[in-house]
Design a protein around this nucleic acid. Structure first.
Lengths: 192, 192
DNA sequence: CATTTACACTAGCGCTTGCTTGGTTGACCC
DNA sequence: GGGTCAACCAAGCAAGCGCTAGTGTAAATG
């Protein structure tokens, strides 16, 4: 057990682990399965990760950091009116499902398998992502674009969005852009 | 391994199993832990259930049947206008979280641990529940109360609703009725 | 009274689990 | 050309896993 840095090798192993975690679930995925997928022996795995838990944490960390980066970039690039910003966030969220679906599914379904220290570290990352959403929702509320309780609206929206991993097919007919547009249309109350 | 009927004893055991599955997750819950929680020895467990999988199936089956019953009753008892029906469904959904939260959490998080036969049987039950929602949403769409694509709207609504198990505290300040009202308000576009 | 049924028990088989140990390899460096 | 270091391997340990076999017993049933 030597290193736990973020070498490129470790990044690649993390990506492969995410795939297996989605297919089998964290608990059912054995270190032997992980090693085989990675093309190494099970003992070698512990050169890159302290233990199995750390592999899970690495998967979730990378996925969340990625989503955060994409969302921030989307907000920087879009128009400044609340509607555009709402749409940009929804679109960014759906686009991460194209490139990073596995990590997102793992983050949603296997969060509770994290031990306490990892959970506390990663919840800060997740909070940062949700804070972006709440900011955008606040702006939309202030502009009268949507209405309702600040807290409840963001929970409902996060729910609708996170649920997309269950049914959205990125290779299907609907683009993230179209889908984001539909979601915003459902929520907003334009002054006809 | 004698019986697999639905005796009252088995119902109680199922309820206790749901509790443990939520706390630990299905895979981490051992038959020995289940037996201890039930106050029997691990071998005795297999008198009531064929195997561990069947316990999971029993938990999900009971929870879904319950939700279906409550939703149907709510629809029978409410006014016939689309807004009332939407509200009745949302309220029924949240009310099941008061009495049956464990089973619902298990159904959401451990669905993929079901083997193929159980999954096929239970998905019919779940489809029946979702069909109720789609019916009510269709009525609301037809009445112009909400708008958007039939398929997408129901996915978004189901997402927002199912996500409530993550944050809703039935012992907290907000009643299911209030919460349902907020959700409907967020979705609907009344002709001001 | 005899039999069945429902429920519980003890004991343990066969296997898999996460992880450790002690070592080898080959590329790079001064 | 000796030293360093990440990367990998073979072997295996201790613990725990789902589940089975066979038995005991008290209440219900004929």
């Amino acid at each position: 057990m030597n290193v736990m840095n973020d070498s490129p090798r470790r990044k690649e192993l993390t990506r492969q682990a995410a795939q297996l975690f989605v297919q089998e679930g964290f608990d059912r995925t054995t270190v032997r399965m992980l090693a085989q997928e990675m093309g190494i022996k099970s003992g070698s795995l512990f050169h890159h990760f302290r233990d199995k838990q750390e592999i899970l944490a690495a998967v979730i960390e990378e996925g969340t950091e990625n989503a955060l980066g994409i969302a921030r970039a989307a907000l920087d690039d879009c128009d400044s009116d609340p509607g555009s910003r709402l749409h940009a966030m929804a679109r960014a969220h759906l686009e991460t499902l194209l490139t990073d679906r596995n990590a997102h599914v793992v983050a949603l379904y296997e969060w509770r398998r994290l031990d306490a220290p990892a959970r506390s570290h990663l919840s800060h990352l997740r909070d940062a992502y949700e804070a972006l959403w709440e900011e955008v929702i606040d702006e939309a509320l202030a502009a009268g674009l949507i209405r309702g309780d600040r807290f409840l609206v963001s929970r409902f929206v996060m729910g609708a969005l996170n649920w997309t991993v269950r049914w959205y097919d990125p290779d299907g007919e609907r683009t993230p852009d179209e889908l984001a547009r539909e979601l915003v249309a459902m929520l907003t109350h334009p002054a006809d």
